[in-house]
């Protein structure tokens, strides 16, 4: 798998990380190298093998559908870079 700058630009946009052209150049080489290395997985016969979905065999517990926590707006907003009137503040998103 070889990577080009366009692919890096596309996935960095998906990941919401700004990258410069110089970084895209460097990352194309690094990610290309890593993905070339993981391609050895193609040697493994996984015909009929189920993908792992539970690390240790156990059933997930169900719990009662009731409120168990919350009502702590002050605590939640305490670390916000910007907040006002009990809300997070972000740049304007609606014109």
């Amino acid at each position: 798998m070889s990577f080009d700058k366009t692919t890096i630009a596309r996935i960095s946009r998906l990941a919401r990380i700004a990258t410069t052209e110089a970084e895209q150049e460097r990352l194309a080489g690094e990610l290309g190298g890593i993905l070339a290395w993981v391609e050895q997985l193609d040697e493994v016969d996984v015909e009929g093998v189920a993908p792992m979905t539970s690390v240790v065999e156990m059933n997930l517990k169900a719990r009662e559908d009731v409120v168990s926590d919350g009502a702590n707006a002050e605590g939640i907003l305490k670390n916000a870079p910007r907040s006002a009137h009990g809300f997070f503040v972000v740049p304007k998103v609606v014109e």
């Binding site: 916000a80 740049p91 998103v93």
Partner: peptide
């Protein structure tokens, strides 16, 4: 938005 570092920008995506 919720915690830690924020670099301000004019629109949400750039932020």
């Amino acid at each position: 938005v919720k915690y830690g570092l924020r670099v301000e920008a004019d629109d949400l995506l750039s932020m």
